[in-house]
């Protein structure tokens, strides 16, 4: 068993290094078109966002649609550290993620008592409140936005994405992760089995907020400018769509969902008027014919590395 795991890990590590190497190499050799490079970094950002929302919505089964709010908190605090205090990038990203996690914890405490759609509307409201707070704060530029120097490159974005995925994977496969899944599967039963459901909901929510904050930090330090409008509830919907499209509850699903949506958006850039109409039709058709998303939840029984193989199969089919 152990040996098998090791071989798998090795393959994954090689695969990850290979992706990194190919991209970094072509950037270094100057053969990478900048638009592709930008799309790749956007994919990284969205992968972190969707997999962290998956932690809340997919793994723990709590219906949150305010993820853009945490992204905003992470982005703005990271930007404040960089612009106002001239701090290093690592510190900025960390501060952004931690503040976002704290906000997630504080928000989660009262609201996670709510169920289903009520939680959804509460988180949506909270996301909007966060956005309105930044909108009204002249210190961070108000509506016109906050200019941030671009300090994120491919190495940073990719490294942080891999790190985030690793942490989330380990969390899901840990006792805590299993407890979260039990909350999703049946809250009352989990309660009866002695699992502190509130605690696990809050843990998942806080962790999700942490990574959303990290993604926001990467976004802020890559996009030159952040504006409150970027983090409206429509952004939360975008992330939710990625999660559900990939397969609710599947980590690799979230990754695939983020890649598919980002690439689709980039590929349709030449048809601006039609882009959202086409996306909408595809989305509806996708949900009707495959409501469990591209991957479903089936790889749950498999390890992360097993899923890697599945992803290949899925993309080949």
């Amino acid at each position: 068993m152990g040996k098998w795991m090791n071989r798998q890990s090795l393959v994954t590590i090689l695969g990850v290094l290979l992706i990194y190497g190919i991209v970094q190499g072509s950037i270094f050799m100057d053969v990478m078109p900048p638009f592709v490079a930008l799309t790749l970094i956007q994919i990284c950002i969205y992968v972190i966002l969707s997999s962290s929302l998956n932690l809340i919505n997919g793994i723990t089964g709590q219906f949150s649609i305010g993820h853009a709010g945490f992204m905003a908190i992470g982005g703005y605090f990271a930007a404040i550290v960089i612009v106002k205090f001239h701090g290093p990038l690592v510190l900025a990203l960390l501060v952004g993620a931690i503040v976002s996690a704290v906000a997630g914890f504080l928000i989660g405490l009262p609201t996670l008592r709510l169920n289903g759609d009520y939680l959804a509307i509460a988180t949506l409201g909270l996301g909007e409140i966060v956005r309105i707070i930044f909108l009204n704060t002249e210190y961070v530029g108000g509506a016109s936005g906050f200019s941030v120097p671009k300090t994120i490159n491919w190495t940073w974005a990719f490294g942080l994405t891999v790190l985030s995925i690793l942490v989330m994977r380990n969390f899901i496969n840990s006792t805590h992760g299993r407890a979260c899944i039990s909350v999703r599967e049946n809250e009352i039963a989990a309660d009866a089995m002695g699992i502190n459901t509130t605690k696990y909901k809050i843990i998942a929510f806080t962790l999700g907020a942490f990574f959303a904050g990290l993604a926001g930090g990467i976004y802020a330090n890559y996009m030159y400018i952040i504006q409150p409008m970027t983090f409206s509830f429509l952004k939360s919907f975008d992330i939710l769509v990625m999660v559900v499209l990939g397969g609710l509850g599947s980590l690799t699903g979230s990754i695939v969902g983020a890649i598919v949506m980002t690439v689709a958006s980039a590929a349709l850039a030449g048809l601006p008027e039609w882009r959202l109409v086409i996306t909408a039709v595809l989305l509806v058709a996708m949900m009707i014919f495959r409501p469990t998303g591209l991957l479903g939840t089936k790889e749950f029984s498999l390890s992360f590395l097993g899923k890697k193989g599945d992803k290949n199969a899925a993309s080949k089919n």
């Binding site: 289903g116 939710l240 008027e273 039609w274 959202l276 109409v277 996306t279 909408a280 949900m287 009707i288």
Partner: peptide, 28 residues
């Protein structure tokens, strides 16, 4: 209708899809 008996979140995504379709189809 096709989604009535599957997970609720799928219908929600469909609703978002329909909403986008009406908004941007309307814009066209």
């Amino acid at each position: 209708k096709p989604l009535r008996n599957v997970i609720r979140i799928a219908s929600l995504i469909t609703a978002i899809g329909v909403s986008l379709f009406l908004e941007y189809g309307g814009m066209l």
